[in-house]
């Protein structure tokens, strides 16, 4: 009887543990997907801004909308976008992210003021100012990619 109870408990806990690890694995996958989406949103915003700056058909309203999307993305909690060890597979996130977390988090934090400058520039409608602000955001993106993103393989 006792051994039966023991078996049941063992089986149940094994099952639970498995469920938990699947959940963790799924969680990691979904975090990485969400993160990729956030990065794509920011890229798209910069692309739209670039179209205006390069005079390739974008309007000031496109830049305003892009700055808003960028600001929203930059407001996300970096710790939830990059939980410890969330790399591997398609992800190019370098393990250094977690060993140099403070540097990484600071670089992410630098995005917000850069995005605010773009919002300001978009409100002015001045192409030069927008180009300069776009460069500022780009610098924030590039600095972090340089240090914490592995090259495409």
């Amino acid at each position: 009887m006792a051994s039966r109870k023991f078996l049941t408990i063992t089986a149940a806990s094994t099952l639970l543990a498995c469920l938990a690890c699947t959940a963790v694995a799924q969680d990691k996958e979904s975090v990485m997907k969400m993160r990729e989406q956030t990065m794509k949103t920011m890229g798209g915003a910069m692309q739209a801004t670039g179209k205006f700056v390069k005079n390739e058909g974008g309007t000031v309203d496109d830049v305003k909308a892009a700055a808003a999307r960028l600001t929203e993305a930059a407001s996300k909690d970096i710790a939830s976008l990059f939980p410890a060890g969330s790399t591997g597979g398609e992800s190019r996130a370098k393990p250094e992210i977690w060993t140099s977390w403070d540097v990484f988090a600071k670089q992410w934090a630098d995005l917000k003021p850069a995005a605010a400058k773009l919002t300001e520039a978009a409100a002015s409608g001045d192409r030069q100012q927008i180009a300069a602000a776009m460069g500022g955001v780009g610098k924030a993106c590039g600095t972090c990619h340089d240090q914490f993103r592995a090259p495409k393989q």
């Binding site: 798209g44 776009m134 780009g138 600095t143």
Partner: peptide, 12 residues
């Protein structure tokens, strides 16, 4: 500024 046409910024 290092931006590709899809709005990505290169590092490395």
């Amino acid at each position: 500024i290092g931006m590709t046409p899809d709005g990505d910024f290169v590092g490395s």
